[in-house]
Amino acid sequence: MLQVLAIGLISAGIYALFAVGVVLVYRGTKVLTFAGGEVGTAALYVTAFLVTTHGMPWFVGALVAVVLAAGLGAVFELGLVRWSRDADPVVTSILTVALSATIFATEINLYGNNPTTLKTPVAVGSGIDVDGVIVSPIQIAAIVVAGLLGFGLQAFLRRTDFGLAILAAADDSTATRLVGVRVSRIRVVLWASSFALAAIAALLVEPTIGVITPGYASTLYLGGLAAAVIGGLDSLPGAVVGATVLGLAQSFADRYLKDLGLSGLDYVVTLALLLVVLLVRSYAPELRKRLTSPVEVTA
């Protein structure tokens, strides 16, 4: 039981890290970014290139990778999103799918299917033993960072002028511009920080597996995306809660499906949870209405 809980929370930490980046961009631009997974994977390759191939310290390599990811986010906004002929959020979201696919294909071309290794400051397999599951310090760090980001960023958005400007720009960019906020700068910052967060998330996940393959972080990123949607898409604490629910659901489902001889159905669980949450949420107002005030049918 404790074991299942521990596994669930470890996944939840990872999902929450990705989900925070998803929600951040969504809150500021109404765009759903699908690229975080591959941005994270690319950051891992960059780190591995600097650390494994060129012998730099892990922290230096990781820092460079995060900065590069932020740079890519800024360039993506400045060079593409801004000039899109169709400024519809759905179109921009598709643009992130295309970006993700491009990065993925490039990773395959450069690294093929040769697994790349990255030596991390924390040894794999060491940590606290929770009922047979080894929880490493870096996994605890992921959970803590995710929680802090979720609630801390929410406070930042609500309490600071810059945060409020971000929220205002998402609701009505024209009006926000008219009161003197430079919306374009906000967008650059949002994309840069979202991509940087994806890189950080991937860097915190990687040591648990230790081997990088193309598309590595994308499967985990899908969990983040789902967690963000489950949490309501525009709430950062919601994203953290969504990630926790998803992580635990997967871990419990896996435990019981194993008894039935089924394994590896994590994505089916994600899909099912996503559907249930979305459908319940979309029917809820109607149900509530029907329960409280039935439509009178006069003869």
């Binding site: 759903l32 699908f34 759905v90 979201s93 899908l222 995306l225 789902a226 949607v229 994505y267 994600t270 899909l271 996503l274 559907l275 979305l278």
Partner: peptide, 8 residues
Amino acid sequence: YLAVVTIS
């Protein structure tokens, strides 16, 4: 939302 569901 449909995009996320279909990608899942």
